[in-house]
Amino acid sequence: MRPFRYHRPAGVAEAVAVLAAEPQAAYLAGGTNLVDLMKLGVQRPDLLVDVTRLPLDAVEELPGGGLRIGATVRNSDLAAHPVVRRDYPVLARALLAAASGQLRNLATTGGNLLQRTRCVYFQDTGKACNKREPGSGCAARHGQNRDLAVLDWSDLCVATHPSDLAVALAALDAVVEVHEPDGPRDVPLAALHRSPGEHPERETTLARGALITAVRLPHLPAARRSAYLKVRDRASFAFAVGSVAAVLDLDGDVVRDVRLAYGAVAHRPWRAYRAEEELRGRPFSPQLAARAADAELAEARPLRHNGFKLPLTRAITVRALTELAEGTPAP
């Protein structure tokens, strides 16, 4: 482990200024991902700026409806928050489907969004990875890629974003409040993460030094009927091999509004706009949900070991939406 300095900033502006001035500094929040990566030599910051004592740990109901979630609110606390449980069940379920109780007690809202891919090649400094070391190649592209992307990957990177929370937030049209060296800014969740393209080492659209300070959920009454469905290889403590976050608003049988996002398929949480388009304005049926998933996945390019993600994602789309339509989302 590389020796590093530790700094506890007095405020957000100071934290951002320090990060902007120190090219090898990193923010430390829950540390559930960063500390592992430091031990593995994958991330080697020389300065940790600990943001956990900043006053960013509140969950506030907004005047016009909606919720502001402080960046350092712990995953466990957020999942248990009564307003989240009542108004945004998709969010509570996504949080509780993630990691383990111990990890959720530490992991923060902001940190969760910025966690790194769990691609095994990224996490092993003995193997080629463009994300870890630009120009070194992508060992996963023709290697063991069962868990990796089927959508929007590039020849330089086939990693997936591992977060469950981010998938739920993508479906909810959440807005990320960030503080950058130039000042505060709002970033729609859907615009926070990048496609891998030519620069898989650049994972977000944030400026160097940017600090996520909060995540804002819009007023969305339809989200009371929402669900998160996660499929994984064992019953707990595993990353998704497929997941879907869904909000369904029906007018009688007709889909008045729908929000759909996928996890475990791409380099970013995947908002399924095409599927939503197929669904909106039509009478709901499981067949329609299947057609919508197919439309979304039409441009998927499975890798050698992950073709199963297409029928899997289709199946969980149908199930999540059908259960919401029937008013019986499975716990």
Binding site: Q123, G126, K127, G143, D233, A235
Partner: peptide, 20 residues
């Protein structure tokens, strides 16, 4: 190609958990 197991930790080499 590497002659090595790629899933060499308990996050990626899955062992049955209590919930299973």
């Amino acid at each position: 190609r590497y002659g090595d197991w790629v899933n060499h930790d308990l996050a990626t080499y899955h062992i049955t958990g209590c919930a299973d």
